[in-house]
């Protein structure tokens, strides 16, 4: 087992390479998901704080095409 982790003497190169790759990937996942959760909460709060129907109708009329189209197309 210990010899395996030594990686033929290259442990200090192999494992950091894997660790760095893992760190990048975990970092991407964590930042993406926290941002998604945070924004979802903000949106829910915004929609809850406002009279929903009126808000929606207005939003549909005035919101930039991007958010509307994006939601229906994606």
């Amino acid at each position: 087992m210990a010899t395996y982790f030594e990686m033929g003497g290259y442990a200090w190169f192999v494992w950091p390479a894997y660790a760095f790759s893992a760190a990048i990937m975990v970092g991407l996942v964590v930042t993406s998901l926290t941002a998604l959760r945070r924004d979802r909460k903000i949106l829910d709060a915004l929609e809850a704080a406002n009279p929903r129907r009126a808000m929606r109708r207005e939003a549909a009329a005035a919101a930039t095409a991007n958010s509307e189209e994006a939601t229906s197309d994606a």
């Binding site: 949106l43 915004l46 939003a59 930039t64 994606a74």
Partner: peptide
Amino acid sequence: QEIIARRIRSL
């Protein structure tokens, strides 16, 4: 997330 952020922005 970006779509939600844009909706927040327009709201």
